[in-house]
Simulated scan of single mutants.
Amino acid sequence: MKKILVTGATGQLGSELNLLSSSYSQYEWIFAGRTKATLDDLELLQTQLNEIKPDIVFNCGAYTAVDKAESERDLAFKINHLAVELLAKYTAKNNAKLIHVSTDYVFDGTSSVALDEKAETNPINVYGESKLEGEKACLKENPNSIIIRTSWVYSKFGNNFVKTMQRLMQERDSINVVNDQIGSPTHAADLAQAMIHIIEFSEWIPGIYNYSNEGEISWYDFALSIKEMGDYKCNISGIPSSSYPTPAKRPEFSLLDKKKIKSTYNLKVPDYKESLKRIFVE
């Protein structure tokens, strides 16, 4: 029985994989939180990998506090770069498969067309820099690995934009949401299913892939969809990013082109509204 190690097990993606795992009992699933796969302690992580001996690694763990990363650069790089390098080395040496999850923040946001896997990277914040270095290390140390870049992840688990909006729209009469950052959301449940689909697929085709739900929207548009589905009465105003300054800059345009993953792995990608609906009926 093949053993799948999921790092970041208590995060949004790890939690969705945990839900799905019972339908895939042909695998032995190991859901490793911070104490079982310690991404900020490389010596300990090496020991843990040697003990677990996974056949497949889903690296869902990451340092994701985008604004905090500006002042915690070393920690962000340790988790998003050096730990990924170690996982890639381990999987290459032990002939194990690695799916590493990355981000649209590796781009600078100056494009006006959907970004494919060959688009030029140029991160504009520390988080994006650390994730890009992780990608590079991953492919260098284990060219047989798969990297999935995703964006705007949400789920019924953890903290995310959808849950924040649901709370604010019930608490307040009006809110402001930025309307000049364009991309597409990703329901973590869909990404989790896509990752399992890849390991179940007849062929393992390494490289970088993009995955998010279909649709080209702003955070403001996303908020309007949440309002509509939740039937909230809150008034929502669109504002420019300049009116909502944050320590870390965000890419203005990071819509991902999904053609490669759809054609290579014969994968259907749901529309963002279709996936968002499930949050309101679950």
Rank of each mutant, 00 (worst) to 15 (best):
A37T: 03
S151I: 06
K131I: 10
N213P: 11
I226H: 10
Y209A: 03
S184H: 03
T91H: 07
E228A: 12
L13E: 03
F253E: 01
K156N: 13
K36Q: 15
R167S: 15
K259R: 13
I146K: 05
A69Y: 05
K233F: 08
N122G: 12
T7S: 10
S112R: 10
E117W: 07
P143S: 05
D67N: 14
P247C: 15
T47V: 14
G207K: 04
K227N: 10
K3W: 02
G158L: 09
K140N: 10
N95T: 11
G158T: 10
A194C: 13
N213R: 08
S275W: 07
E117R: 09
G238R: 06
W152L: 14
F157C: 03
T35Y: 10
S243A: 15
A65D: 08
E214V: 03
Y220G: 00
P240G: 05
D55V: 07
E28H: 13
L276G: 01
G8P: 01
K140H: 10
L115P: 02
K78T: 15
S212R: 04
V126N: 11
D116M: 09
E216L: 05
L87N: 01
S22V: 14
Y220A: 02
I199W: 03
A88L: 13
D231M: 08
R250T: 03
D231S: 15
K68V: 12
E200N: 15
I279K: 00
S15W: 03
K53L: 06
G230S: 09
S218M: 01
K277P: 08
G109A: 01
S184F: 00
L191D: 10
N179W: 15
Y90P: 03
H197N: 05
V126C: 08
A88S: 12
N235C: 07
A194T: 12
T10Y: 03
R149K: 07
L168C: 08
K78Y: 04
E133P: 04
Y90V: 02
S71A: 14
I239Y: 09
T121K: 14
Y27N: 02
P247G: 11
I198V: 15
F157N: 11
L168D: 07
P251L: 00
G128R: 02
P245G: 04
H187F: 14
K259M: 09
K68W: 14
T91D: 14
E282K: 13
D74F: 14
I236S: 05
V177Q: 05
V281C: 11
L224G: 06
Y27W: 08
K262W: 09
Y232C: 00
F107D: 08
A32K: 06
A192E: 01
V153C: 06
V153A: 02
S22E: 13
K93V: 05
M195L: 12
E70L: 07
I217W: 00
S184T: 03
A62R: 01
Q170N: 11
C234Q: 03
K3F: 05
N125H: 13
A189T: 01
E135S: 06
S254Q: 08
S225H: 11
L49N: 10
I205R: 12
L255G: 08
I147V: 08
S111A: 14
P240A: 09
D108C: 12
K268C: 12
E16M: 07
S184M: 02
K277C: 06
L42H: 11
T47H: 08
A69D: 05
N159T: 10
A114S: 15
Y272L: 00
Y105P: 04
H81I: 02
L13Q: 03
